[in-house]
Nucleic acid binder design. Sequence first.
DNA 1: GTGGCGGTTTGACGCGGCGTCAAAGTCAAG
DNA 2: CTTGACTTTGACGCCGCGTCAAACCGCCAC
Lengths: 278, 278
Amino acid sequence: MFRIGEFAQIAQVSGRQLRFYDQIDLLRPARTDPQTGYRYYSIRQLPRLNRILALKELGLSLDQIAPLLENEISPVELRGMLIIKRSQVEQSLREEEARLRHIESRIAQIDREDGMDGYDVVVKSVPATPFLALKCSCQDMEEAVHMIRAVADDGGRQVRIALRDKLVVVARNDHEDEKLELEIGFSLTRPSNASVRIAGDHVLKPSELPAVATMATIVRVGTDPTSHSSFGAIGTWIEANGCEIAGSCREVFLEPVVGSPGLAAALVEIQFPVRKAA
Amino acid sequence: MFRIGEFAQIAQVSGRQLRFYDQIDLLRPARTDPQTGYRYYSIRQLPRLNRILALKELGLSLDQIAPLLENEISPVELRGMLIIKRSQVEQSLREEEARLRHIESRIAQIDREDGMDGYDVVVKSVPATPFLALKCSCQDMEEAVHMIRAVADDGGRQVRIALRDKLVVVARNDHEDEKLELEIGFSLTRPSNASVRIAGDHVLKPSELPAVATMATIVRVGTDPTSHSSFGAIGTWIEANGCEIAGSCREVFLEPVVGSPGLAAALVEIQFPVRKAA
DNA sequence: GTGGCGGTTTGACGCGGCGTCAAAGTCAAG
DNA sequence: CTTGACTTTGACGCCGCGTCAAACCGCCAC
């Protein structure tokens, strides 16, 4: 018979641990002195403790281990538990790997002394949304900004405020064309069939922004100057994450765009639909 | 301004989470109505929340994130934190991989319907111990058992009980010889220079069992019948763990071996020194 | 006004597996 | 008998919220 400290030393566990296992009836000492409360362990209890430790290392919880020790669980059930556990471990392995890649890419980013702003990429899911937008192809950014401003201002006036939600620009990058294929318009709070004619003989037509389950997003202030760096950041992120782009990029203006400095000072969320690369 | 529920929906977090971040001063709402206590968030707070979420995904704790948000931390310090985090993640990756291999080998074991007893392999470290033992080489198991019994009985009588600790058999398996190169003796509670002569003109000589940092161990009842299966189990375990054997195997008799059925009914701990395979 | 429903508040407990005190009692050696 | 090492119970801490509960608030329909 050993006192708790000796037994703890033999089994390389802490005394607190043994007391805890006693408390939850996982491993009770062979004898407990009723006078003093001292716990006395037999070396014969070592196999049980070792079994506990071995199963714990497999990732099973103490609640799961308890019935195993009492042989209240058939090998088939244990197999089932292990199958589940395996998939959990595989999942967490993938997550840890992704985490590791992200950490490394951030370290590399610091070493490059990049502007470290706006590297807060977050994945979220977005639901399908009714959309009222103008399709157009622009030669350059300048023309695009002009069109966006036109839609924001004129459309903002003509679409009822209760219906209008947020200004959204969708960039279709299917073909490696020089031109920017854009859809510029408003997400809507509820579906609507009405078209809206704005200045310059353009028409906003109703459609739908499809739902995206995994969308890599980044929020940025202002459209132009840092545009390149934040796109770069999200690209780096996607690469580090082992993902690939799975659709057209969106820019969502989170605040109503008002007046002349509106676009430059606006809070914009860049969204890239992504999926796990094959 | 959004109420907590709307903001939570936008950012894809729970309201409880936002309340918690408020509580720990990580993200306070833009305004809190002093009358009702209602929290009102501005969309301008989304970047901060996103930064929190992004850093959290890197594995940083909220306590670590807080100063980062206040720019109280230089990029160099952040880099240091990330380096540390990286090594932690690498470590946990290795552990998870080992866990996965162990789970899979146990599933395979169930599928083979092996006797599932005694697969509770536990790694521990053992300190160096003074040792009083007889070196001998035996032709077969029968002779070995005979020698062990001789040492146990006769040595047990002659070595003072306060000095004697446990019966230990060390199996040197350096050369692929047929013969068993054994050291049979007692671990001692303190160093001693005395030799002990036992029956059959054999002599127990003092030496030392070297310390082993990582020892794969398994506890078993009885020496003979299941010997093969438990050695198999520990071998499988070592393989699954990506380890290799790094020294001579030991059998430690955890209980004093008394009388005739002593060896067969004894509680024995098999020990294999291991190290990570290259 | 008023009833109702859905959102919000604070507050508390729970989780998992112990670590880490603190105060008081026990054991064995000198 | 003293001393110092060990043990007991009990409580709180951890980390990041989830999940109640009871009470309160806002907005819409009547």
